[in-house]
Amino acid sequence: MNKEWPIWEIFIRSKNGLEHRHCGSLHAADEEMAIQNARDVYTRRQEGVSIWVVESKHITASNPEKNGEMFEPAADKVYRHPTFYELPDEIKHM
């Protein structure tokens, strides 16, 4: 049995002006093949104009078990939102 091909994460830009978005993953022997396979699998109906591939092992993810300390501190900072500030109704363009 030959060695298993690595997994690649695929990011597609659906049209210029928009960001690349993660759309899935696939196996490929190298980056060139990953791009070709991504084209065949994820853009058969003109879903993209640009493809990024990155080997999954190069992605570092945050730990969901630490979500509390990671993301909760933002929850009580309402003053970061414009609606926190009370202004009279006659103020326009603000």
């Binding site: 030959n2 060695k3 091909w5 022997a29 190298d30 060139e32 093949m33």
Partner: peptide
């Protein structure tokens, strides 16, 4: 599959 693996190894 073997061919693709061999090619990838060579490129690397």
């Amino acid at each position: 599959r073997d061919g693709a693996s061999a090619y990838a190894d060579k490129q690397a």
